[in-house]
Structures are given as C-alpha cells and as structure tokens.
Design a protein around this nucleic acid. Structure first.
Lengths: 89, 89
DNA sequence: CCCACTTATAGCACAAGTGCTATAAATATT
DNA sequence: AATATTTATAGCACTTGTGCTATAAGTGGG
C-alpha cells in the first residue's frame, strides 16, 4: 500500500550530488588560493555566511545567481570556477 | 507606515538578471548549434520542457544541478556553457 | 590554557525553483 | 491556407534554496 495521496505521480527533482561535490571542492580551492575566509567571501559576494558554508560542504544545490556572485567576489571567471571534470551522474 | 509584520528585517535575495539573461542567450545558442529542440533537450537532460523554456527566456534562476544536466545533454563542458562575459551586476 | 577566528550545523520563515499539465503563440512544412 | 512543430506562458503543488540567528566544533596564537 504505497498510495501517495490520490494517485499523484511522484515528481522527481534532480540533485546532482557528484557535481555539487566537485563544485564544492573547486570553490574551496579557489577561495583558499585567494586567501580569504568564508566570512569575507560571503560579505564580498553579498550572500550569507551560512550559504557559503553550505555550498562548500555540498549540502545544497546553489543557484546560478549565487555562483555568479561568488565568481565576482573571487575575481575569477565562471569558467574558472568550473575547471573540473563534471562527474558522470 | 510600512511596518512589515513585527519589525522583521527584509531579506534580500539575489537574482542576477543580467547574468541570467546572458546565460539564457548562451544556452539557446549552444542548443541551436546542436540542432535539437527544447523538448529534446529537456528529455535528454531529464528535466521538464517548461523548465528549459523558462531558462531560455531568463524567467528563473536555475540551480547548478539543472545546469549540469543540461551541459551533459548537450555534450559540452560547463566551461563551454559559460563562454560569455559575465556582466557586472 | 585562554582567546580570537574560522568553519560547520541547525532551525525557522519566506522566496523561489521545479515538475506537471494545459494552452496560447510563434514558426516551420506541405 | 491548413497542419504540424516548436516555443512561450500560466497555475498549482511540492520541494528546496536562502537569509538570519544562534551555537557548536575546529584551528591557531599568545
């Protein structure tokens, strides 16, 4: 008996764990290289500190706007932030 | 008199309109180059058609997972999808 | 051992992304 | 022109990203 409500089809959202993890690693790497703290990055990017931490620990699936803000704050191009091999899902 | 509830500070989310628009243009460009329809792209990427349309018309701020899925479906690297100058916000 | 700083978690409230479905509008094709 | 295909909108329900605040855990200096 696994009726979900009234025969509602289950929506499957995507959460690309591997990709998100790869990005997390890359971001931390770039941030470290510029020598700033998560807190400073958050301030510069205009996002919250908790959000930076959540991204670097791959807990969330950030939006493009957030990524753009981070790239600007780190003074790197978007391409540079994605210099890693996107793992096959 | 513009009290919002009980003195709650307004949270400001970011929505990088210019960046999102630049990405929309770039995506449409890459998709066209591969000669597939929004519908096909959606299917290949495992996302909904409405989502592809919303992205290409810059109506939403997609997540990284969505972008990753699209890149895989188009057989391009993430960097390639971001081959445009990120406009200053 | 303290202390300051940094990073990681947690919970709440709210805003927004996403899937799904349906439909309209625009664009090709015959 | 008529038809088919593609693209754009819209609304709903559900899920999740985000800010904010607080707190714990890790780290390095003195």
């Amino acid at each position: 008996m696994k009726k979900r409500g009234t025969g509602r089809k289950k929506r499957r959202l995507i959460f690309d764990r591997k990709g998100i993890e790869a990005f997390a690693i890359r971001l931390k790497e770039v941030r470290k290289k510029t020598g700033i703290s998560q807190s400073q990055l958050a301030f510069e990017a205009g996002i919250s500190l908790s959000q930076v931490a959540r991204i670097e620990t791959a807990r969330i699936n950030p939006t493009l706007s957030t990524v753009f803000a981070v790239a600007r704050a780190l003074n790197v191009s978007i391409s540079e932030l994605f210099l890693f091999n996107l793992p096959t899902e």
